[in-house]
């Protein structure tokens, strides 16, 4: 999988590249509009992370260019502006997703995986971890081909964990992903614990071979057992 990160902030770029490389993606970078244009003409990418606030041009114009070239290319807009217009314009131009800064790394991975999954129709669209299989289109979870009865939020939690396996997922990142922006009071993240407890119980009952490990004070890590 080849990913192009278009980002003019060196610190931001460095973080994204490091984190994406840990997932064994081939990551290339462009810090300017010009460099990005050059790269998309020369190489083929599976996914592009596009900062629309570039110093020498608007990322939205670049997006148009990209879509003209290859309509199946996955594009995620990354923006510090969090402006509704940009979001709407970007999605109208064919972007797959819109990620406002600041974001959690776990969120970035979940979005990238989701885009790659959706774009690779011929590939395996199922997520698997040992005997656990998740079908994101059907929103079903099976352990050894036996379907689990999960509610919407439990399913979202599990999918998020699978997109971030072997990676530490903070409570905040998980809370914001599953419950949205309203979960923004520090004390309200504690309730996530009881949700995880239910999920663990259901997974254990069906003999799923994975472990949701609590990392002190910060969050969780999902690993195969």
């Amino acid at each position: 999988m080849k990913i192009l990160v278009v980002e003019d902030e060196p610190g931001m770029l460095d973080n994204m590249v490091r984190s994406l490389e840990e997932e064994k993606y081939v990551v290339e970078t462009a810090a300017t509009y010009e460099a990005a244009t050059e790269k998309i003409h020369l190489y083929k990418y599976d996914c592009i992370l596009l900062d629309i606030g570039l110093p020498d041009g608007n990322g939205l114009t670049l997006l148009e260019e990209l879509k003209k070239q290859d309509a199946t290319l996955g594009v995620i807009i990354v923006s510090a502006k969090n402006a509704v217009d940009d979001k709407v314009a970007g999605l109208n131009l064919g972007a797959d997703d819109y990620l406002p800064k600041p974001f959690h790394m776990a969120e970035l991975h979940a979005r990238v995986k989701s885009v790659l999954r959706r774009r690779k129709f011929e590939g395996n669209r199922l997520l698997e971890l040992n005997n656990l299989t998740v079908d994101p289109d059907e929103r079903t979870v099976c352990v050894n081909d036996v379907q689990l009865a999960l509610n919407r939020k439990e399913y979202d939690i599990l999918l998020y964990f699978l997109s971030n396996r072997n990676r530490l997922v903070s409570k905040t990142a998980l809370g914001e992903h599953v419950w949205g922006d309203q979960i923004d009071e520090a004390d309200s993240f504690d309730f996530i614990y009881s949700q995880i407890k239910n999920l663990r119980k259901k997974l254990k009952e069906h003999g799923a071979q994975l472990e949701i490990q609590a990392i002190y004070g910060i969050g969780y890590k999902v690993q195969a057992t």
């Binding site: 610190g11 931001m12 973080n15 984190s19 959690h104 790394m105 776990a106 530490l168 903070s170």
Partner: peptide, 20 residues
């Protein structure tokens, strides 16, 4: 607020990388 977004994002992500 706007100018704070990027440095905030960078620091947050760097700490996340460190935690990992």
């Amino acid at each position: 607020s706007h100018e704070l977004q990027t440095p905030l994002a960078i620091s947050l992500n760097k700490l996340e990388l460190l935690v990992e």
